[in-house]
Design a protein around this nucleic acid. Structure first.
Length: 620
RNA sequence: GCGCUCGUAGCUCAGUUGGAUAGAGCAUCUGCCUUCUAAGCAGACGGUCGUGGGUUCGACUCCCGCCGAGCGCACCA
């Protein structure tokens, strides 16, 4: 965002029309633009990219604040309060603010007129924006996530990559960027030797028709066990793999069939999760490029042979401690190369990933490529990015390669999440259980109510589906992604606290008002006369206006949990407003204002949840 | 051994360029349904932000040491 906003503001300064829309969508940005201009007037050489305006964490100080004058004063060896006085004198924000205060060592606090807030609400009500602005210079972003393996069931380990990746792609798209999602499926590798052997010798056709993945899994387990015990068997499997790699017609056909049935499984899961990909170029897609990549690396002197393998080694450009191509063993720094060809001539995933970066750059010319992959692979990506930069220095400067890592899912005992019998939890089973548990909660809550107030029973399963899937997704997106988190059905399906059900409930309360209130005159067309008076009205309105800021932070830091926390705060503020400010009983401007706040809160909740990949329900 | 990530209330977790009195939920306790869905709201209780230094107007945040946890350390991905 540090890079984005100044250029954003600059662009807009050139286009008055856009500036207008932009200001209406996000007050803090117009204040920021004006503040930056004032700073430039006082300090022409100052770096104004650090001059940011943010909402005040404490409303008593004001509505928006900037702390930027303090570091600025320090850099220029000026008295911060004096600088603040000068900047304040050069600052013209009278159209938005009653007062600009200098506080403490040199904080600048802006107090916005309620009428200015009302103006933003009115323009939002007219459908001109939803408190965020599309990027004026859209970036092209490739997002690589999910990446399940062929012939294996998708399991609980895939929800993090899938959920975080999907949320990120949704947020980037919402902000107007060009997004290309690519599912880098594991459809190649040594396991296919064993699978082919199993397919040819012990395949159960009926079982395959019934549950293809389970049958493929069985084939692998049986043959794998045989190979462990019997070297001749292992040799047989290797021969099948060699034939596949050589393009043998029969093995290729079987391999393609395995991909086909696996894809059907992926499609079922993705369908339930509402996840779509623009491409699914698996590892095998890059096969033809692997040899040439290694030849090129060797030819350029970037890779070299060692112990029969080919790898990229340290170039000694950084101290050993910071060198990703060195590792310390017993006090001695030894090579830890990025291997691109094994001593048996085969390639490994470093080679595939290099070919993949190369392909993506040539095909889509992205500004960035984002890999949503387990944190344990951070070492691999570090080497991959460095190796690519050495291989194609110029191309590497055009693209930002980012590894968005995440932690493990733990069970409630604090150990890796497994079934009672110790197996990995299959994703399909997990989603089934989520819906079942959600149904029991929905049913329980409905039965607590007087019959007249219940949601019609036929709607319960659909509500349970939205709540259950939403709960699983939300629980996964909520924690800071780099840390491990504890999986708890009880907590994710709880009706209180920072959970999907709480947010969905807030949304249904909004919808309920409109059902009860019937057709409401004038909300969209003649949105005017909005007057914010009650503290809870104002607090809610201000929170709505932070939506854009949060979306940009999500995209900038690749952290969907910012959006989760924002929506939770929004829902909380709405609940307070709902308690203290009767809507349908109010009259005149008060009623219109409150209806508008309900409408806009509903829209932001729905849009925000949608950006997290979570559906909403009208009643629950 | 070396590297990466982390350590915040009894438990599970937030904490947006370093910024003003560190926040939620659960648990414990107290109030609020003849009023738009109480799956809610208000309040109380609960903290030497692992620890010891340093940087500065200001540190949970940045730097260094130590303690503790998880993960990774050529030919699996």
């Amino acid at each position: 965002m540090r890079v984005l906003e100044p250029s954003f503001a600059l662009d807009l300064a050139r286009r008055v029309v856009s500036l207008h829309a932009f200001a209406e969508a996000m007050l803090h940005l117009i204040l920021q633009t004006k503040l930056q201009a004032a700073v430039r007037a006082i300090l022409p050489d100052a770096d104004t990219s650090i001059v940011l305006v943010r909402p005040c964490p404490d409303a008593r100080h004001g509505d928006y604040q900037s702390n930027a004058l303090l570091p600025l004063a320090k850099a220029q060896k000026l008295n911060p309060r004096q600088l603040a006085e000068q900047v304040k004198a050069a600052l013209d924000v009278t159209e938005l603010c009653d007062a600009v205060d200098i506080a403490g060592p040199g904080f600048l606090n802006f107090r916005v007129r309620p009428a200015a807030f009302a103006g933003v609400l009115e323009s939002a009500a007219r459908g001109e924006h939803l408190f965020f602005a599309k990027a004026t210079t859209p970036r092209t972003v490739v997002i690589d996530f999910s990446s399940p393996n062929v012939a294996k069931p998708m399991h609980v380990g895939h929800i993090r990559s899938t959920g975080i990746g999907d949320a990120l792609q949704r947020v980037f798209r919402l902000l107007g960027h060009r997004v290309i999602t690519d599912n880098h499926i594991g459809d190649w590798g040594t396991q296919f030797g064993k699978l082919l052997l199993g397919w040819k010798q012990i395949l159960d056709r009926d079982a395959l028709a019934k549950d293809a993945i389970a049958e493929l899994e069985r084939l692998y387990k049986v043959i794998n066990a045989e190979c462990d015990a019997n070297l001749a068997r292992l040799e047989e499997a290797k021969q099948e793999l060699v034939k596949l790699q050589a393009g043998d017609a029969e093995n290729t056909a079987v391999w393609q069939e395995m991909i086909r049935v696996s894809q059907a499984q992926f499609d079922t899961i993705y369908g339930r999760l509402g996840v779509k990909f623009d491409h699914a170029l698996g590892e095998s897609f890059y096969n033809p490029q692997l040899g040439p990549v290694v030849v090129d690396l060797l030819g350029r002197g970037i890779a070299r042979e060692s112990e029969g393998a080919v790898g990229v080694f340290s170039d000694g450009s950084v101290p050993p401690k910071e060198d990703a191509f060195l590792v310390n063993r017993d006090g001695e720094w030894v090579p830890d190369p990025a291997l691109v060809r094994k001593s048996d001539g085969g390639f490994n995933y470093m080679t595939t990933d290099l070919a993949t970066v190369d392909y993506r750059l040539k095909t889509w010319a992205p500004d960035q490529i984002v890999y949503v992959v387990d944190d344990r692979q951070s070492g691999h990506f570090k080497k991959l990015f460095l190796t690519f930069a050495r291989w194609q220095a110029d191309a590497a400067k055009q693209v930002k390669l980012v590894h968005v890592g995440f932690g493990k899912i733990l069970g409630e005992d604090g150990k890796p999440f497994k079934t009672r019998s110790g197996d990995t939890v299959k994703l399909g089973d997990l989603l089934d259980e989520a819906e079942l548990r959600a149904f029991n909660v929905v049913k329980g809550k409905q039965l607590e109510r007087p019959e007249a107030e219940r949601v019609p029973e036929p709607l319960w399963p659909e509500i349970a589906r939205v709540v259950g899937l939403g709960a699983v997704k939300y629980a996964d997106l909520l924690p800071n992604r780099q840390s491990d988190y504890q999986f708890s059905w009880e907590k994710m399906l709880a009706l209180q606290g920072n959970t999907a059900p709480y947010l969905l409930y807030a949304y249904t309360r909004v919808r309920s008002i409109f059902r009860k209130g019937g057709e409401l005159p004038g909300i969209r067309s003649q949105a005017s006369g909005v007057s914010l008076a009650a503290p809870d009205e104002l607090a809610l309105a201000k929170q709505l206006m932070n939506f854009g800021l949060v979306l940009e932070a999500v995209a900038e830091e690749y952290r969907p949990n910012f959006l989760c926390n924002y929506l939770y705060d929004l829902a909380g503020l709405f609940a307070r407003f709902y308690e203290s400010c009767p809507v349908l009983k109010a009259e005149g401007a008060e009623r219109a204002t409150r209806l508008l706040l309900c409408e806009l809160t509903g829209r932001v909740l729905k849009q925000g949840l949608e950006a997290l990949g979570i559906e909403t329900t009208e009643q629950m």
